[in-house]
Amino acid sequence: MSDAAEFVDAALQRESSWERAEAWEAQLGNGLSYYGASVGAVRGTIRDAGRRYPKLSHDEITALSSELWAVPVFERRLAAVVLLQSNLRLLDNSDLTRLEGFVRSARLRALVDPLAVDVVGPMVERLDAPLRVRADAVLDRWAEDDDVWLRRAVVLSPLRALRKGGGDWDRFVRRAKILLEQSEGAGAEGDVVREAVALVLAEVAKTRPELQLPP
């Protein structure tokens, strides 16, 4: 394990709480282990790591995120998400393969949603036109994938941009309508996607009530 990964892991373990770990395991489960560090502690740890290891390159940031993610501990994986959130300026469409792997293995709203809303979506939005076309093609493939968590990530990815008055509403509508049709009769798995569509619609309605999902 790299020095940076050891620093993050040790800091998270110092912030552990067995009471919180038990509560999170009961609430989130999913076969992960839990240190019991708070979300604030995770974010603080990544800030401290940024000060301790300044000016990390793209490859160093992405490698560190993979190191943290590789161990199935919730706080480590959440730290990987926060690390990527904090270094969006370094990411580009070449990182979608890594992010796809994270989403596929996360299978948990508490990890998939911030990956989609705060990493995938903003990263795609800031790409120039040629790279944006490639990235959108990848997300279109995710929308057709059998993995329901990839489909949820596609739905949630434009949320930040749409809330702020930007984003591609027509593309969201096309994807949402297809995914809603696919989710019919899919039971609890379908709920994962339907819930995401409802969340985006509710959030966008707060600032852009004129945007409606056509029947």
Rank of each mutant, 00 (worst) to 15 (best):
D95L: 10
R77W: 03
T97V: 15
P54R: 01
V71L: 13
A135M: 02
G166A: 12
S65I: 02
V73E: 02
V155L: 09
L150R: 00
A106I: 03
A129H: 12
A79F: 07
L90K: 14
V120F: 02
G165S: 09
S86L: 02
D128I: 13
P72Q: 02
A80Y: 00
D113C: 09
L91W: 08
L99K: 01
A143L: 04
L108T: 04
L96S: 12
P158D: 12
A135Y: 09
L111W: 00
P72S: 12
S66H: 05
G50R: 01
L68V: 06
D95P: 05
L56Q: 11
R163I: 14
L159W: 01
W69V: 15
S57W: 05
L162D: 08
L162W: 06
R107F: 10
N87E: 04
R89Y: 10
M123N: 08
G166I: 06
F102H: 00
L99P: 00
D147W: 05
L56H: 05
L83Y: 08
W142R: 11
R163K: 15
R163W: 09
L159N: 07
K164I: 09
R89G: 11
R107T: 13
S65H: 03
L68I: 02
E144C: 14
L96P: 07
E125Y: 00
L90H: 12
A79C: 11
W169P: 11
V103A: 01
L64F: 04
L162K: 11
R141C: 05
V117P: 02
L162S: 13
L111H: 03
L99C: 03
R134M: 13
D140L: 15
A49F: 01
V82M: 03
K164L: 15
E125N: 01
F102D: 01
A161F: 06
A80C: 06
D128V: 12
W149D: 13
L111K: 02
S66E: 15
N93F: 15
G101C: 08
R76C: 03
A161M: 07
A137D: 11
V117R: 06
K164F: 09
I61V: 15
R109Q: 13
V124P: 05
L96A: 10
L156C: 07
G166Y: 10
Q85K: 14
D168Q: 08
F102A: 02
P72F: 00
E67H: 11
M123S: 04
E144F: 04
V133S: 11
D92T: 06
P54F: 00
R160S: 15
A116V: 04
E67S: 15
V119P: 07
K164R: 14
V120E: 00
W169A: 14
R151F: 07
D59E: 13
E60I: 04
S86M: 09
D92P: 09
V82Y: 03
N87R: 14
E144Q: 15
A63N: 11
L78A: 01
R151M: 13
R134G: 13
S57N: 05
D128S: 15
S57E: 08
K164V: 10
V138Q: 01
N93Y: 12
V81C: 09
R163D: 11
L83C: 12
D118L: 05
Q85M: 15
A70M: 10
L115F: 03
G167T: 10
R52P: 07
P122Y: 13
L96M: 07
D128Q: 13
W69E: 01
S65D: 02
R109M: 10
R109N: 12
A49Y: 00
